[in-house]
């Protein structure tokens, strides 16, 4: 009986403490998810009003459409460019800076520095490098003579280089984040393990592959998952650097850009936007499940 009253006595306080959070999370996270699933089988007018159901077949239509499949393929390519290169560079930088040397704090600060750039800041810095008329590279005569594509049509306007250019900007912007995470991982590797392996005659590369990599594998898995989901959700880079173009190939129209982009063909169609958003949700869910399953077994979490 006493237990029962204590269970009930806390209710008003629990309600006060949880109420605000619950209201916000329900209204702006769970309701929109459910509503998006419903909206995905509707069609609305250009103002997003007067939505009418047209059937769940709309999802099938979207999945089968060239635009969605193209955007998905672009997104996959973008992830395949940015994630492995970004991770490798981050690990390389962290290993390079993982020594007790004079001045190392200075270098670490520089290597972490891109974390201070928002997507808009980073993208505009790269826009100024890559833009074909006012850009830095286009106004370096010697460079332009070796790589005419910089000027005509421009790295961001050539269908062959656009996605790579956006990718490099994105890798640069994420590098500070990756560097900080991997450095934190490296610092958790016990020095004694390296020393005893060194005494046993293991060289630098052998110590790196046999000791360092397995021990930082949880960090690497975590970083990979975050970088992949960032790649799939990348939007600002495309919005500022390419507008999803160049057209007509739409070389940088990723799934997220397809939903929200100002030059996307579905920008005034809430129903289709919701359908693509729900599909993006399912893809991201499947992707992180796969990554945790696939790598999870090989990850060494220590004791």
């Amino acid at each position: 009986m006493a237990v029962k009253t204590r269970r009930l006595r806390d209710i008003p306080l629990a309600f006060t403490m949880l109420g605000p959070s619950l209201l916000v999370l329900l209204t702006f996270v769970l309701y929109p998810l459910g509503k998006a699933v419903w909206l995905g089988q509707q069609t609305c007018n250009v103002q997003g009003k007067n939505c009418k159901s047209v059937g769940w077949g709309q999802y099938t239509t979207v999945v089968k459409s060239d635009q969605f499949q193209h955007a998905l393929w672009v997104t996959v390519k973008f992830a395949l460019i940015t994630v492995p290169i970004g991770l490798a560079l981050g690990v390389g930088l962290a290993v390079l800076a993982d020594k007790q040397l004079r001045g190392m704090r200075f270098f670490r600060t520089i290597f972490s520095s891109t974390i201070a750039t928002s997507v808009a800041v980073a993208s505009l810095m790269w826009l100024f490098l890559l833009q074909p008329s006012v850009g830095v590279l286009a106004n370096l005569g010697w460079l332009r003579d070796i790589f005419p594509v910089i000027k005509e049509p421009g790295l961001l306007k050539d269908p062959g280089t656009a996605l790579w250019s956006v990718g490099i900007s994105s890798i640069w912007a994420n590098l500070g984040f990756t560097f900080i995470l991997v450095t934190a991982g490296l610092q958790s590797v016990p020095k004694e393990m390296h020393e005893s392996a060194y005494v046993d005659g293991a060289g630098g590369w052998m110590r790196f592959t046999n000791i360092t990599l397995p021990l930082i594998s949880p960090t690497l898995l975590f970083t990979t998952v975050v970088l992949t989901s960032r790649a799939f959700q990348a939007y600002g880079e495309m919005d500022l650097l390419t507008n999803g173009g160049p057209v007509p190939q739409d070389s940088t129209t990723t799934v997220t850009y397809l939903i929200y982009g100002s030059s996307s063909i579905i920008k005034n169609n809430d129903g289709l936007q919701a359908a693509v958003a729900v599909l993006l949700f399912l893809i991201l869910l499947a992707l992180s499940a796969l990554q945790f399953r696939g790598f999870g077994k090989r990850v060494h979490y220590g004791s």
Binding site: F28, P32, L39, I259
Partner: peptide, 8 residues
């Protein structure tokens, strides 16, 4: 993910 909720 944030991107999924913003349409609604």
């Amino acid at each position: 993910p944030l991107e999924v909720t913003l349409v609604v």
